[in-house]
Design a protein around this nucleic acid. Structure first.
Length: 319
DNA sequence: GCGACAG
DNA sequence: ATCTTGTCGC
C-alpha cells in the first residue's frame, strides 16, 4: 500500500498561510493538494472540522466569489470576519481579482500526488485475464461506519455452488481518510487489508472476492476492487450501486455496457425487481464476461437486488 | 468552461 | 456512507 496522507492536518497547516485580507477558492486549494476534483472535499472540510477561534477557515470561498458555508453555520459571521480583515466585496461577493491569493509556487507535491501515482501503478498492474483457478468459495467485503471516523469491515465467505455462508469476519478500526470520489480505496483499503491478514491467519482464503465499489470502472482504472486484487494477488470483482463515470446506452437490455473514452469498462445490470441497475467491473485477474457470469451465479435473483456476497457483507458490516 | 463524481 | 421523517406494501 502507499502512505496515506493526513488531509485534515495538511489543510489545517495550509490555511494558516492565507494572509489576512485575502481568500482562496476551494478549487485552488484542491489543486494545490494535487487534484482539483477534491474541491468538494475542501468545502466539506471548511464546513466541518475541528475549529478554534483563531482558525482561518473563513478565508475559503467559492470560485464565484460567493462565501459558501461556514463552520459555525452562520455565514454572516464569515462575512464579518472577512470584511474586518479588509477583503474587498462587490455585489455581496468577494472580489477575487483584488482579494484572491495564491502561494508562491514551491515545487512541492500536494498530498494527493502520491495517491495519483499509486493509482497509476495499480492500473498498470491490473490483470484483465481469464481466471486461473477453480472457484470453490466466493467472498463479499464491505464497510459500514458505526460512528464518525470509525469503520467496520465485514467479510462473508460463501460456498460458490450453494451460496451457503461458510464463514464471517468483522473488524473495527479508525478510518482517518475522508470520502472523496475516485479516492475511495485510500479510505477503505487499509481496513480491508487488515481484515485480509486475519483471514490468512485463519487459513480462510476465498477464491474470488466481490467488492462493494468499482474496479476498472474508474476514471484512472484504479477502483478499490482493483487495488485490493493487486495488493493481495487475488481475483476480484467490483460491484457498485451507482455510476462513478462513463455512459450507459438507453434500452431495456438486462446487460448494457458502460462506455468511457470508447472503451467498455463495465456492465450495467438491471434486475427484474428494480429498474435501477448496478454496475459490475473487472477488479483483478478476471475478464469482464467472467465477472458478469460469476455475478449472475452469485445472485439470488428472487431475493435481493445485489449479488449474495455483497448483500451479506453489507448486512454484516452494519451489525 | 462547467458539471458530475463509487462509499 | 449516515441521519431523519414520511410513505408504501406485504
Amino acid at each position: 500500500m502507499v502512505e496515506i496522507p493526513d488531509l485534515p492536518a495538511w489543510l489545517n497547516q495550509f490555511l494558516r498561510r492565507i494572509p489576512s485580507g485575502k481568500v482562496m477558492t476551494y478549487g485552488d486549494v484542491a489543486r494545490l493538494m494535487g487534484d482539483v476534483s477534491a474541491a468538494r472535499y475542501v468545502a466539506e472540510y471548511g464546513r466541518r472540522h475541528e475549529h478554534t477561534s483563531d482558525c482561518p477557515c473563513h478565508r475559503l470561498v467559492r470560485k464565484t466569489g460567493e462565501l459558501g458555508q461556514y463552520v459555525t453555520g452562520d455565514v454572516q459571521e464569515k462575512s464579518v470576519r472577512l470584511q474586518s480583515e479588509g477583503v474587498i466585496f462587490a455585489d455581496g461577493k468577494v472580489d477575487l481579482d483584488r482579494s484572491g491569493w495564491q502561494p508562491e509556487p514551491n515545487g512541492l507535491p500536494g498530498p494527493l500526488s502520491g495517491l495519483l501515482a499509486y493509482q497509476d501503478r495499480i492500473s498498470e498492474a491490473v490483470q484483465e485475464c481469464a481466471l486461473k483457478n477453480n472457484i470453490n468459495r466466493v467472498a463479499g467485503v464491505d464497510l459500514a461506519y458505526p460512528e464518525k471516523g470509525i469503520g467496520q469491515a465485514a467479510c462473508v465467505i460463501l460456498n460458490a455452488e450453494t451460496l451457503e455462508i461458510e464463514n464471517e469476519l468483522i473488524r473495527r478500526e479508525p478510518v482517518p481518510f475522508p470520502y472523496i470520489p475516485r479516492y475511495l480505496a485510500f479510505r477503505e483499503l487499509p481496513l480491508l487489508l487488515s481484515l485480509w491478514e486475519e483471514l490468512l491467519q485463519q487459513g480462510e482464503e476465498p477464491d474470488l472476492i466481490f467488492v462493494d465499489g468499482n474496479g476498472l470502472l474508474h476514471p484512472r482504472r484504479a477502483g478499490i476492487a482493483s487495488c485490493l486484487g493487486v495488493e493481495i494477488n487475488k481475483p476480484t470483482i467490483g460491484i457498485s450501486k451507482s455510476l462513478l463515470c462513463g455512459t450507459v446506452p438507453e434500452g431495456s437490455d438486462q446487460e448494457r455496457p458502460v462506455l468511457y473514452h470508447d472503451q467498455t469498462i463495465g456492465m450495467a445490470i438491471t434486475s427484474h425487481r428494480s429498474s435501477k441497475p448496478f454496475y459490475v467491473s473487472v477488479g483483478h485477474q478476471i475478464t469482464l464476461s467472467e465477472a458478469v457470469r460469476w455475478m449472475f451465479r452469485s445472485w439470488k435473483q428472487a431475493e435481493h437486488r445485489l449479488p449474495e456476497p455483497i448483500f451479506q457483507a453489507d448486512r454484516l458490516s452494519r451489525k
